[in-house]
Amino acid sequence: MTFKNYLGILGALMVIGGGFSPMLHIPIIGNWNYWDIDTVLASVVYALATLALFAAAGGKFGLLRFCGWALIIVLTFTFVAVYFKVTNYFSFIPLKKLAAAASSIIKYRWLGWGLILSGALIMIFFSKKNKNSKSA
C-alpha cells in the first residue's frame, strides 16, 4: 500500500470519528452527535465513509474522491438543516426576542463538524493522480 492509501484510510476514519463526536450541545439534554441529529443522514455519512475506507484500501482513488465530495455535500446539507432547525426550534414562543434568546442557548460543537470536513478534504485532495506517474 502506498502513502495515498494510508491517507485515504485516515480520512475515512476521521469522518467516522467525527460522526461519533459531539456536534450540538442542547442544555439539559446534552451533546448530540450525527446519529442524534438525524439517523438517515448519519447512515448515509457512515455508508460513504465505509465505502471510502474500502476504496482507499483497494486503491480506487476515483471512488475515494467521489465519496469525499458526496460527504461534503451531505455535511453542507446537514449544517443548513440544523441551522434552520435551531433558529426555528422555539418558534412556538409568541415573543420573538424570547424565542431568539431561547434559540441562542443551543450551541454548536465544532469538533465533529471539523473532523468530518477535514476527513473529506483529505480524501479529495490526496487522492489525485500524480502527473509524473505512468499507468500500466
Results as ranks from 00 to 15, higher is better:
residue 53 L to T: 01
residue 96 K to C: 04
residue 36 D to M: 10
residue 28 I to S: 13
residue 31 N to I: 03
residue 58 G to K: 08
residue 121 L to R: 08
residue 111 L to I: 14
residue 20 F to T: 08
residue 43 S to M: 14
residue 62 G to M: 06
residue 131 K to V: 15
residue 11 G to Q: 02
residue 8 G to R: 01
residue 14 M to R: 03
residue 69 W to M: 14
residue 114 G to P: 01
residue 16 I to F: 08
residue 54 F to G: 06
residue 77 F to Y: 14
residue 128 K to I: 13
residue 31 N to P: 04
residue 47 A to K: 08
residue 120 A to F: 05
residue 48 L to N: 07
residue 59 G to V: 05
residue 102 A to R: 10
residue 10 L to D: 05
residue 67 C to I: 06
residue 29 I to F: 10
residue 60 K to T: 10
residue 24 L to P: 01
residue 70 A to N: 04
residue 106 I to A: 06
residue 92 F to P: 02
residue 64 L to S: 06
residue 13 L to R: 02
residue 16 I to P: 01
residue 124 I to P: 01
residue 94 P to M: 06
residue 79 F to G: 09
residue 120 A to Q: 01
residue 131 K to A: 11
residue 108 Y to P: 00
residue 73 I to Q: 05
residue 130 N to D: 15
residue 57 A to C: 09
residue 61 F to Y: 15
residue 58 G to R: 05
residue 28 I to W: 09
residue 67 C to R: 00
residue 117 L to S: 10
residue 23 M to G: 00
residue 86 V to C: 12
residue 82 V to K: 04
residue 41 L to P: 00
residue 103 S to M: 05
residue 11 G to I: 05
residue 104 S to P: 02
residue 57 A to T: 07
residue 111 L to M: 13
residue 39 T to S: 12
residue 47 A to T: 09
residue 46 Y to I: 08
residue 135 S to E: 15
residue 30 G to N: 07
residue 127 S to D: 09
residue 52 A to Q: 00
residue 85 K to P: 01
residue 5 N to H: 12
residue 18 G to N: 02
residue 38 D to F: 06
residue 19 G to N: 10
residue 11 G to T: 07
residue 117 L to W: 07
residue 30 G to E: 03
residue 105 I to F: 14
residue 112 G to E: 05
residue 7 L to I: 15
residue 37 I to P: 05
residue 117 L to F: 14
residue 81 A to D: 13
residue 132 N to C: 09
residue 129 K to P: 00
residue 20 F to M: 11
residue 136 A to N: 14
residue 88 N to V: 03
residue 119 G to Q: 03
residue 20 F to H: 06
residue 111 L to G: 06
residue 52 A to H: 00
residue 22 P to C: 10
residue 120 A to T: 04
residue 56 A to N: 00
residue 12 A to G: 10
residue 51 L to R: 07
residue 32 W to T: 10
residue 123 M to Q: 10
residue 32 W to Y: 15
residue 29 I to K: 11
residue 78 T to M: 12
